[in-house]
Design a protein around this nucleic acid. Structure first.
Lengths: 136, 136
DNA sequence: CCTTGACCTTACCATGATGGGAAGGTCTAT
DNA sequence: ATAGACCTTCCCATCATGGTAAGGTCAAGG
């Protein structure tokens, strides 16, 4: 199987497959005489694993750790759970930050008339005019 | 005021101030004879505006638009509200995606014993073994 | 006057993950 | 044999930010 077919089969672009190889996330595959990369179903399986992990928001580094555990028959399931738990925490922190932003913006939009008057509470907030003395 | 003092006063790093100038977000300041950038309170005010906008998650491009509206006395407040509203939508989409990831991960962690058995539902899910036929 | 240290300047490189493209080699089907 | 689809490597771009290096400037103190 050439790289294009492996890409189709795994949902990972050929570009990314080469990149993952380059950074050492996956092993270099065998090559044909004409230097084409050759993949089998095992490699496609690994690529699917990576794609799913990335879809769930794991970084490449985390994905590499999960991949190592996946391929390690003697692994402890607790390690995997810890990685996932930490990832959940990070995601929840991110969500809280975004929700805070949304809250602030919604408040501002709510206060904003949206008409043609030059007064705009959103810009005033960004400028900090109502919380800080405007003079130098 | 030199760039370091402007950075302290605005909370924007000197590095970023130069970058914002380079990409045209802010105007090049006057220079001393020895080529040092010189800033006044107006510039610091602009930098604070930018920092606040970035903190709220607006991109540099959006920040530029908001900045132009802020500095445009004849602006329509509705434009600002529209930018903010679109930004809220984008943030909410992002939040929904993250929450979906968290939901999936929590389910997996919940199913995971966390002991030393090699069976791990998280890895199984990533590998897709329970939703896809393993053979090619 | 000279040194020291803190500051400034530009220029380049790096991140993380991905896409785009160019220039050139290979394979397959007609 | 040739066209078109595929492969190869290499370089560049994104976005916003940080770092580092090499060199210029300024203020304080001996």
């Amino acid at each position: 199987m050439n790289i294009g077919q492996a890409a189709d089969a795994s949902g990972v672009s050929a570009k990314m497959i080469r990149y993952y190889e380059q950074i050492g996330l996956i092993r270099p595959p065998t090559r044909t005489d004409s230097n084409y990369r050759v993949y089998g179903s095992d490699e496609v399986h690994v690529l699917r694993f990576i794609r799913r992990s990335r879809t769930l928001g794991f970084s490449i580094e985390e994905t590499g750790a999960l991949l190592a555990l996946w391929q390690d028959k003697t692994r402890a399931s607790g390690e995997v759970r810890d990685i996932a738990s930490e990832h959940i925490s990070a995601l929840e922190t991110k969500i809280a930050e975004l929700e805070s932003m949304v809250g602030t913006l919604k408040h501002l939009v709510h206060c904003c008339q949206g008409d043609n008057r030059p007064d705009c509470p959103i810009l005033d907030d960004l400028a900090g005019t109502h919380s800080k003395t405007k003079g130098h």
